[in-house]
Design a protein around this nucleic acid. Sequence first.
DNA 1: ATGATAGGCAAGTAGTTACTTGCATGTCAA
DNA 2: TTGACATGCAAGTAACTACTTGCCTATCAT
Lengths: 90, 90
Amino acid sequence: MGDVFKALADPTRRTILDELADRDDQTLFELCSRLVMKHQLDSTRQAISQHLDVLEAAGLIEVRREGRYKFHSINRGPLEHIVDRWLDRP
Amino acid sequence: MGDVFKALADPTRRTILDELADRDDQTLFELCSRLVMKHQLDSTRQAISQHLDVLEAAGLIEVRREGRYKFHSINRGPLEHIVDRWLDRP
DNA sequence: ATGATAGGCAAGTAGTTACTTGCATGTCAA
DNA sequence: TTGACATGCAAGTAACTACTTGCCTATCAT
């Protein structure tokens, strides 16, 4: 199991989460083009793919295969209470 | 201004925040000994000092000088809403 | 003043991380 | 089956990060 904080440490990965929060169930190519268009990112497909691996290992995204496509969705679970250890809220 | 997520990416820094959440207003030496005692950490003074610099740059701790002492306290402000961009809660 | 204490500065090192590069696998449409 | 498309794998590189090491400054008690 990957480290959620380490996964969030990279700005590109946070932008990927932004994009997936806006639109679920995107393929790698979809993500790449939308990251270029909307977020002014110009990473290669392989770079994005590796970021997705890190995010998946941290449990921050979930994956669904269908034929040659692989759809990625955000999983907000790990985000819910990661900072609660330092906060005094219920 | 430092990156809050990057500051949180290191386990030692998170432990430092744990310790400061438990007891505010600690000097560097106090922190070092308590990290050894309570958290099984054995980092050097310089290592801890550099971690404190990162945490301060990220706004996660605040500092108060008094003579030759420097007191460190946790600042929970930056922690409050860092994940809200991906969550749909009020 | 002198020594002890608390902390600061900075260069160097080992390990990690993001990214690239090139090729391979798997799926589908024609 | 063939070619195009979507993704996977893996070795290499450049930059970064945590940590060390050695010395320096500042404050205080005696």
